[in-house]
Computed example of a mutant assay.
Amino acid sequence: MLPTNSTLAAELGSVPEVVSRKLGEFYRLGLIALERRTVRVTDAVRLREIVG
């Protein structure tokens, strides 16, 4: 289960707005699927290319 954006941001040293924006971007690009507070990676190769 996905932690809240606030929790995830704190763990990453970021802010919730950035986490939300990036998850939305990855979703729109078809790299992830968001289902009931769960993230499923749908294109791991492209996601790795983007995030390094």
Results as ranks from 00 to 15, higher is better:
Met1Ser: 00
Met1Ile: 00
Met1Trp: 05
Leu2His: 10
Leu2Ser: 06
Leu2Ile: 02
Pro3Tyr: 09
Pro3Cys: 03
Thr4Asp: 02
Thr4Pro: 03
Thr4Val: 00
Asn5Gly: 05
Ser6Phe: 00
Ser6Arg: 14
Thr7Val: 03
Thr7Trp: 03
Thr7Ala: 10
Thr7Ser: 12
Leu8Phe: 06
Ala9Thr: 04
Ala9Cys: 08
Ala9Pro: 00
Ala10Tyr: 03
Ala10Phe: 00
Ala10Pro: 01
Glu11Leu: 07
Glu11Val: 01
Glu11Ser: 06
Glu11Pro: 00
Leu12Ile: 02
Leu12Met: 05
Leu12Trp: 07
Gly13His: 09
Gly13Val: 08
Gly13Glu: 04
Gly13Phe: 14
Ser14Gln: 12
Val15Met: 06
Pro16Leu: 14
Pro16Ser: 12
Pro16Tyr: 13
Pro16His: 11
Val19Pro: 01
Val19Ala: 03
Val19Asp: 02
Arg21Gly: 03
Arg21Tyr: 11
Arg21Leu: 09
Lys22Phe: 02
Leu23Ala: 04
Leu23Asn: 02
Gly24Tyr: 03
Gly24Glu: 10
Glu25Met: 15
Phe26Thr: 05
Phe26Gly: 04
Phe26Asp: 11
Tyr27Ser: 01
Tyr27Thr: 12
Arg28Val: 05
Leu29Gly: 02
Leu29Ile: 00
Gly30Met: 05
Gly30Tyr: 13
Leu31Pro: 03
Leu31Tyr: 01
Leu31Phe: 15
Leu31Gly: 13
Ile32His: 14
Ile32Glu: 11
Ile32Ser: 08
Ala33Trp: 14
Ala33Phe: 11
Glu35Val: 14
Glu35Ser: 15
Arg36Gln: 10
Arg36Gly: 02
Arg37Val: 02
Arg37Ala: 10
Arg37Tyr: 12
Thr38His: 12
Thr38Ile: 03
Thr38Gln: 13
Arg40Gly: 01
Arg40Ala: 11
Arg40Asn: 12
Arg40Glu: 07
Arg40His: 09
Val41Lys: 13
Thr42Met: 13
Asp43Ser: 13
Asp43Thr: 08
Ala44Val: 01
Val45Cys: 01
Val45Met: 14
Val45Ile: 10
Val45Glu: 15
Val45Asn: 11
Arg46His: 09
Arg46Lys: 15
Leu47Arg: 15
Arg48Ser: 05
Arg48Lys: 13
Arg48Gln: 11
Glu49Ser: 10
Glu49Pro: 00
Glu49Lys: 15
Glu49Met: 06
Ile50Gly: 05
Ile50Lys: 15
Val51Gly: 00
Val51His: 04
Val51Phe: 08
Val51Ala: 13
Gly52Thr: 02
Gly52Lys: 12
